[in-house]
């Protein structure tokens, strides 16, 4: 299995905390089970509906190929086996910012990524950011659990 940058199970706390702004896209606010993580994520709920209190597992990976070949950033479709096969919802995007939040002992790290405009803000203990690099290509893979 290729190296995975981050994996956790999240529970949806709220849908659209600021009110529904877009028809097909919703911003979900979720909380992870480990590392004290919280996340805001834009999901195309038109094709992948989500609801309050649902749980899903989410994986962030740098490539979809199972042998770990790095992704080129340009689209090469093909019927190969990939990491995505096990997941229901897969997005591709780019990590554009890592910043610090909080201060002192409660210092947290925020990781921002954009999946073609659908944004992700992942915050948690500094350890979660150890594998991330700026300008990294990211695949976000989701699958509902329970």
């Amino acid at each position: 299995m290729a190296d995975i940058l981050f994996e956790d199970i999240f529970t949806i706390i709220r849908m659209n905390p600021d009110g529904k702004k877009f028809d097909k896209v919703s911003r979900v606010e979720v909380e992870g089970e480990h590392f004290n993580t919280k996340m805001q994520l834009d999901v195309n709920t038109d094709i992948y509906p989500l609801h309050d209190n649902e749980k899903f597992t989410m994986v962030l990976a740098p490539t979809l190929s199972l042998d770990g070949t790095p992704d080129t950033g340009y689209f090469t479709p093909g019927g190969r086996k990939s990491l995505a096969d096990k997941f229901e919802y897969v997005m591709h995007g780019k990590l554009y910012k890592i910043s610090e939040g909080g201060s002192g002992p409660n210092v947290t790290v925020e990781v921002y990524a954009s999946f073609g405009g659908l944004l992700m803000k992942l915050s948690g203990e500094p350890t979660i950011a150890s594998k991330f690099e700026l300008d990294q290509r990211l695949f976000l893979l989701m699958r509902k659990v329970g």
């Binding site: 195309n44 094709i47 992948y48 979809l64 992704d71 950033g73 340009y74 689209f75 479709p77 995505a84 997941f87 229901e88 919802y89 897969v90 997005m91 591709h92 995007g93 999946f115 073609g116 405009g117 659908l118 695949f139």
Partner: peptide, 13 residues
């Protein structure tokens, strides 16, 4: 570019 949404269907934004 690689589509922003790969699954369930390929969609570009």
């Amino acid at each position: 570019p690689t589509p922003a949404l790969i699954k369930p269907i390929e969609l570009w934004t």
